[in-house]
């Protein structure tokens, strides 16, 4: 590197050192993060990960100088304002933490809506004034009600994937609707010869939860079906046995302490039912006691 400044050499060397000393190297995009927020995120990551911003060329040099096999594949994921993240934590967990630390941010003109942006119906903080016209002009159904501007219906104002128009961005901010998310956007992470891209790193926690419940239900079903006794299946089997026994006792009209009241009650209720139908034909068919 003949024409490379000394500080650049130092930086590449220090990046290389970080690459070699961590199991996981992530490539993130820091675009659109306001400085104070970035400071905060850095601090919260302090114990578990190190975030380094640098020039693309220097990061490339550092990656290429590493002995780690296949780590140069991270170069393909340098987007926006790239930064390297170094950690020893499971890359999936790293991704989860970074996603979880993202915060809502105001709309920016020209930004792409990550999902449908909806202005919900309901009261606004605005007193009647020119804002009403602005809302209506942006396509938001608004009117004046009891001295306040009220939005009459939910309105999807920007569809997912569409750019946010300038006037809409300003209205959304005034309505305190923050449709964008900012945070450290982990594009890919390298561990042990493999580069995991963000789509792979996305964990569907709800599915995991559903799978756990499914596994448990399946295990319980199988236990009960195959009569394998464990502390989960035995209560179910006991209930089944108790229900079937009670069914048999009641259907065979066998009186015991459990069935007695039920059978007496049944006889009485049946009598009332027959009496009701008889008295519907002729009031005098039943005695006064029942008619009341």
């Amino acid at each position: 590197m003949p024409h490379v400044a000394e500080w650049k050499k130092d930086e590449v060397a220090s990046l290389k050192k970080l690459i070699e000393s961590h199991e996981v190297v992530g490539m993130a995009n820091l675009s659109d993060i306001p400085a104070p927020q970035l400071q905060k995120m850095r601090r919260s990551l302090k114990d578990s990960a190190t975030l380094k911003m640098s020039r693309k060329t220097l990061m490339s040099l550092a990656l290429n100088s590493s002995d780690k096999e296949n780590i140069t594949a991270l170069e393909e994921h340098m987007d926006g304002q790239p930064a390297l993240i170094f950690t020893n934590m499971n890359p999936f967990k790293l991704y989860k933490i970074l996603e979880g630390s993202k915060t809502a941010a105001p709309a920016k003109a020209g930004s792409i809506a990550p999902e449908d942006i909806v202005v919900p119906k309901g009261d606004t903080a605005f007193k009647p004034g020119p804002i009403l016209g602005e809302l209506q002009k942006s396509g938001i159904p608004a009117k004046i009600e009891k001295g306040k501007i009220v939005i009459t219906n939910d309105k999807t104002i920007v569809a997912a994937g569409e750019p946010i128009p300038r006037d809409v961005a300003s209205i959304l901010t005034r309505l305190e609707i923050f449709p964008l998310e900012v945070g450290i956007d982990l594009r890919a992470a390298y561990e042990d010869q493999t580069v995991y891209t963000s789509d792979i790193l996305t964990i569907d926690e709800e599915k995991t939860l559903a799978d756990i419940q499914k596994a448990f239900t399946q295990g319980l079903n199988l236990s009960v079906e195959a009569m394998i006794f464990n502390k989960e299946s035995v209560p179910v089997l006991l209930q089944k046995a108790a229900t079937q026994s009670l069914n048999l006792a009641l259907n065979a009209e066998i009186l015991n302490s459990k069935t007695r009241d039920i059978l007496l009650a049944r006889a009485y209720a049946q009598m009332l039912s027959v009496a009701a139908e008889a008295s519907a034909k002729d009031e005098n068919a039943v005695d006064d006691e029942i008619r009341e």
Binding site: N90, D192, T208, I212, Q213, F216
Partner: peptide
């Protein structure tokens, strides 16, 4: 390996006992 790692990361915030109780 990736699936194992993903599983563990996912389970970190899940209370399995709780999930089971809810199923029951």
């Amino acid at each position: 390996e990736a699936r194992v790692k993903a599983l563990i990361a996912a389970l970190e915030d899940v209370d399995i006992e709780d999930a089971i109780q809810k199923t029951a």
